[in-house]
Structures are given as structure tokens and as C-alpha cells.
Amino acid sequence: MPAPAAPPTSATESPPPDADLAVVPVRHYGRWLAAAAVTACASALLWSLLTNPNLDIRLVLSYLTRDFVFRGIGITVVLTVVAMVIGVAGGVVVAAMRMSANPVLRTVSWVYLWFFRGTPLLVQIIFWGFLGALYPRLFVGVPFTDIALLDEPTSLVVTPFVAAVLGLALNEVAYAAEIIRGGMLSVDRGQTEAAQALGMGPVRILRRVVLPQAMRIIIPPMGNDTINMLKMTALVSVIGGSDLLTAVQNVYAQNFQVIPLLTVAVFWYLMLTSLLSLGQYYLEKRFGRGFGERPPGTLSRLLGRGEGI
């Protein structure tokens, strides 16, 4: 008896899995052309800077490690740290006032934010620098007595450094308050209610429950704000704040080497902001553990396939 004939093979039927397939990689000629164009432009710009006699790289290198530069860097770092510490501490207080059930506290905090976010930082710094024009003397006394706790000329109390700290810190309080408030609002209300059920007071709930959980949301914008604060310290040069920019300005006002000395300032600002960016990265990694983490190698695989770009 003859064997039954095999059924006809459809033209659209896929080949067997063991068939040899020619794998042709996708060519991305546009990427290579864009990379070549960007590299050429960057190389041309770098070469023009290095060969420009008005920049004078040797003069820039000779100024990088001068004493006046390091003193300016020290003042810049101190201003940044002090302003951020006061700003964050005050921001927690103002944020708590904004979220308070007390209408007086909410109103006062709203007016504070309205004023300090609504006026330029440069104007605020100049105002504190010339506070003596408004109050020639600062007097603080004990109420209902003749005892004076402070009675000095304003210029002796509010020095350029103090004016710089006041301008930077009070402005930072307003911005930090909104960053912290946003982080606090991200914490589930059930966490607060559970803490209240355990008999915890408002301050303890804020310190032990709300803020630790809000840090994951607060750290990225606050890190960016810290980097911005470092750069904003350059504004205090208008009142002679002795920062890095003031230091180089004092020198190029005498030798007229404006571009080389500004290049020195740019270099050190980049170094300082790079250090702050590195610190921000590790803080984000520390407080973001367990939230939205990808498996190892996920990012490299996505980049390798060109996804998400």
C-alpha cells in the first residue's frame, strides 16, 4: 500500500528553526555623522582656546594655586555651607508652618515665601550690604528696662561677610521650604496617623517618621540647590564679600589680565561643583535604596540597544 503523500508546504510557512539565517546588523550612519560633526566642532573650539594669545594658558596655570585664589575658595565654601545649613534648617520650619493648621502660621510663611522668592537675590544681597543706610545703628535692649544688649553702628555688625550670609541664607530658606514641603507631602498620610496612634508628638513625628521618608524626594532638588548656591556666592562680589570671584576681580583690576583670571575662577568653580555632584550622587544612592532600582546591567543593555535615547 503506497504511503500517503505529504501535505503541500505553504509559501508563507516559516522556515525550520535550525535553518541558517544571515544576521545583518542595523547601520546607524546618522549617529556616526553626528558624532564626527560634534567632535570636529569641539576640537576646533578647544584648539582656538589653547592657541589664543589673549588666554595665555601659562599665565592661567601660574595663577591656579596662588594664595589669594585659595583664600577666595575658602570663603566661597564657607558661604555655601553656612547658607545651606541655615537655609535647610529654616526651610524645615517654614515648610512645617506652611502645612500647619494654624492660619496665622500659614499666612506668615506664605508672605515670607512671596517676598524672598519674588525679589532678585542680587537685590537682597545689596540691601543687606547697605543696611546701614536704613538703620545707622543697631539697638537691641531688654523690654521695659534701660539695659542694652546691642548698641553698635550697623557697619560694624553687618560686615560684607555677614551681609552675604544673610542674603544667601534667607533667600535659600524660601526655596528649601518648598522643596522640603514637596518631600513631606509625598509621604503617605497613613504614616502620620499611625505615629499619632502610637502617641508620638508632632515634632517627633516630623523628625522620626516624615523627614526620613521624604529624604528620597528631597535629596535630588536639594543637591541641585546646593550646587546653585555655590555659584550664587559669586553675587556677593558686588558688596566685596571676599569670595573667589572677588579675589580674582581685585587682582585683574590691577594687572588687567581679565580673561586669564576669570578662567582660573571658572576652573575652580567647575572643580567644586563636580565634587558636590559626586556627593549628591552617593546621597541619592543611599536614600534611594529599594525604590525603582533596575536589575544589574539593565541600563547598559538599554544603551547598547539604543533604547530610551
Rank of each mutant, 00 (worst) to 15 (best):
A89D: 05
V93L: 15
V104P: 14
V104W: 12
F68C: 08
G87E: 08
G72I: 04
F70Q: 02
I75D: 07
R66I: 02
D67M: 07
A83R: 13
F68A: 03
F68E: 02
V93E: 01
V82R: 04
I75W: 06
V88W: 06
G90T: 01
V88F: 13
G91S: 06
G91N: 02
A101P: 13
P103G: 12
V88S: 07
T76W: 00
I86N: 01
V82C: 00
V82E: 11
F68L: 10
G87N: 03
V77I: 15
N102W: 01
V77M: 11
R66V: 00
F68M: 06
V81M: 02
R66P: 01
L64D: 06
A89E: 09
V69Q: 05
D67L: 11
T76M: 04
V81I: 14
V88R: 07
A95S: 14
G87A: 09
S100H: 00
G72W: 05
A101W: 12
G91L: 10
V69N: 08
R98W: 01
D67W: 10
V77R: 07
T80Y: 06
V85D: 06
G74W: 14
G74L: 08
V88G: 02
T65I: 13
A83H: 01
G91K: 11
I75T: 14
V94W: 06
V93F: 14
P103R: 03
V94Y: 01
A96F: 11
M97I: 00
V85H: 09
A95Q: 05
A101F: 10
R71S: 12
M99E: 15
G74K: 03
G90Q: 06
V82L: 10
M84E: 13
I86E: 06
T76Q: 03
V104C: 11
A89Q: 12
V81W: 12
A95W: 01
A96H: 13
V92M: 15
M84F: 08
F68R: 08
V92Q: 05
V94H: 11
G91D: 06
S100D: 09
V77F: 07
A89S: 14
V88L: 15
G91E: 06
V78N: 00
M97T: 05
F68V: 09
M84C: 01
N102P: 13
T80K: 03
G87H: 00
N102E: 00
R98F: 00
R98T: 07
V82I: 13
T65Q: 12
F70K: 04
G87W: 08
V94D: 09
V81C: 03
A95K: 09
V93Q: 06
V85E: 04
S100P: 15
N102K: 12
V104N: 11
R71F: 08
M97D: 04
P103Q: 07
A96P: 14
R71E: 13
V77H: 01
V69I: 08
G87V: 11
A95V: 13
A95I: 12
V78C: 06
V81G: 06
V69K: 12
V92E: 01
I86Q: 10
N102T: 03
A101Y: 13
N102I: 09
L79M: 11
L79D: 01
F70A: 04
L64K: 11
A95T: 04
V92F: 15
A96M: 13
A89N: 08
T76G: 09
I75V: 15
V78P: 07
R98M: 11
I73P: 01
V82H: 00
T76H: 00
G90R: 05
V69S: 07
V104R: 15
T80Q: 11
M99N: 15
